[in-house]
Write a protein that binds this DNA or RNA. Structure first.
Lengths: 343, 343
DNA sequence: GGGGACTCTGGGAGCGCTCCCAGAATTTGT
DNA sequence: ACAAATTCTGGGAGCGCTCCCAGAGTCCCC
């Protein structure tokens, strides 16, 4: 009751080697399809591994390779945001798919408040993961700065508001998207186009405001008193829309920098007796997959593909991990417009 | 240039011990606050660890303890579902919080199609995690059956349609919630209450249908020709509602087994010229945080708290991991009704 | 005061793997 | 034909940690 791969224990490399009649070294080489293994040995080892149901012990492997085979996906946004916005679900899902295809595991971490930062940093520098994907840091988020000090490969999603030199970033063309929204509204004959902005400490919100401004200025139209800040929420959008209606009762279109804010704006417009889109046309941003089509009328919105973003991020990180020299910088992804009934 | 914790490398336990002037064993004991360490040694070791910025090598630790300190969260639902439904985001977030508090890491895995099952099983039995939380398996999902063969502690969220003997499950009171919805509609004087069901291979959808039936039968009201299957989507709900209006034009209320279906139903009702809630009252299920309040009128819906569910699941898993004898079975969590304008 | 308990410590072994190195087997070149 | 390269193999070391064990020190109670 002593020899052989015992019944209850998981077989080790040594067991596989013994079963195959080769040494541990040869078995290891065969399994990692390293150079210098005879095809006969390789075959016999692979057969042994299959017969015993062998799967390598990841802990033992990392101990010597100093690689964990895992990557952290860090979502740095307040809880409410992460929960409501399907963007994050799409990011998680896409990251999982891409990482799995590359044979890596995905560890998920949320950073809701500043209090979570030290713990996250400690974990990240604890050597549990080979690299990190960090999504949506807003201005003043201490995470990017702290991460720069770590010697851990990191790729950011969404331009961090703070320093951005020497870091890898994949972002959407927020400014271009906002311009696209305004140009669409101009195209359907609107000339008094207001905007409900996101919180302006958020780089994306800022860029969307800039895009709106640029397009209106280029068209020679008025921007004064035509913008009001929401906070990316329905209630914020509703409140902002009421302000705008008060300040500019003659407005004939509104660009909301997020879909929930667009929904709030629509509510305020209906309450004020305006018809959508006849009296006031509405365009949102993000193309919220559940919300935008469910609105009445369905919401026209700027569409961005989170999968493309996370795919780019993962590929960049994997290149970094492989030691390929990747030039730091920001990659900007294009957006499109999803036309529905509201504009 | 040889001795001491070298500048670039991460310090090891040996380094900490040397710095503190104790043995590796004592350092280990102090750090794991094990029994039998003098308070002086503990202090000096902790100080050394802090000074050197020591953090233990998880791989080395797992190698000997045969524990990884990580748990897999497995979401077994088709991609579209996971992406649109904030329920899953809440589950992930809640799981992360609870696991972090227990000092564990969370590995996230998605199982979209049957093809993903073997890979998932292989991973789970590969010893990468200490246990698994598996959410929302539907009837015929091969995952639960396959997992039973593994000697890996698993806790399910949402009753799997297949065998449920000997497994740990935490579910919501779907039947009770549906009953609650119907009773609310009865309470506001409705008597011809239709339902739009989810796909009936889904245990939750089935339970919600049963609850609706029970409540109507108990009230002595008609159920014939008053139910129609959607598929948990907006379009399905819209189509089902049109059928119901055709079959039972005199209906005065509808209970939809999900919020997107409720949104679809509302669209069909408005298209048919019915006023909500005057002509037809609408109740949804899930209390979708973005969708329900954004509807016009805002949607009354059955509320369930995903955090409570995942919290229960994590606590059960941790007890299992600790070797506490937990009786297998299903824990049913209560739901409530969120009253808004639609009913 | 002496024996039996506790409290604390350090060294050794070993978890399962990969890498290095020396040597055996095989091929190639002249 | 023999030397030199090349292919392949097995053993040893060691990654950083925890656990076991033996032993030293300390306390207490009869």
């Amino acid at each position: 009751m002593a020899a052989g791969p015992s019944q209850d224990e998981r077989p080790t490399l040594e067991d596989v080697a013994a079963y195959a009649g080769v040494s541990r070294s040869t078995a290891s080489r065969a399994l990692n399809d390293d150079a210098y293994v005879s095809s006969r040995s390789r075959e016999v080892v692979l057969a042994a591994a299959a017969a015993l149901g062998y799967s390598p012990n990841q802990a033992a492997r990392s101990l010597v390779t100093k690689r964990t085979g895992a990557v952290a996906l860090v979502l740095s946004e307040p809880e409410s945001k992460v929960l409501d916005d399907p963007y994050f679900a799409a990011i998680m899902h896409g990251a999982f798919r891409e990482l799995t295809a590359a044979g890596m595991q995905m560890l998920l971490m949320f950073v809701d408040t500043r209090d979570d930062v030290p713990r996250t940093i400690r974990f990240l520098e604890g050597g549990h993961v080979d690299g990190a994907l960090v999504v949506a840091p807003h201005k003043g988020d201490p995470l990017p700065t702290a991460l720069r000090l770590l010697r851990l490969p990191v790729v950011f999603g969404g331009r961090p508001g703070t320093i951005s030199r020497g870091i890898h970033t994949v972002d959407f063309d927020n400014q271009g998207g906002a311009r696209m929204a305004v140009e669409h509204l101009l195209g359907i004959g609107r000339t008094r186009i207001a905007t409900v902005t996101g919180p302006l400490d958020h780089p994306a919100a800022r860029d969307r405001l800039t895009g709106w401004e640029d397009a209106l200025v280029a068209a020679g139209l008025r921007i004064e008193a035509m913008s009001e800040s929401g906070d990316f929420t329905l209630e914020g959008g509703e409140r902002a829309m009421r302000c705008l209606l008060h300040r500019a009762p003659d407005l004939d279109a509104v660009f909301a920098a997020s879909d929930p804010m667009a929904a709030g704006a629509m509510r305020a417009l209906i309450a004020a007796g305006r018809q959508i889109p006849q009296d006031v046309a509405v365009v949102g941003f993000d193309d919220h997959p559940t919300l935008a089509p469910a609105m009445n009328p369905p919401l026209t919105s700027i569409h961005q593909d989170p999968r493309e973003q996370i795919g780019n991020m993962v590929r960049t990180l994997i290149a970094l991990l492989a030691g390929d020299p990747v030039r730091p910088g920001t990659k900007i992804l294009p957006v499109s417009i999803a036309r529905r009934g509201s504009a």
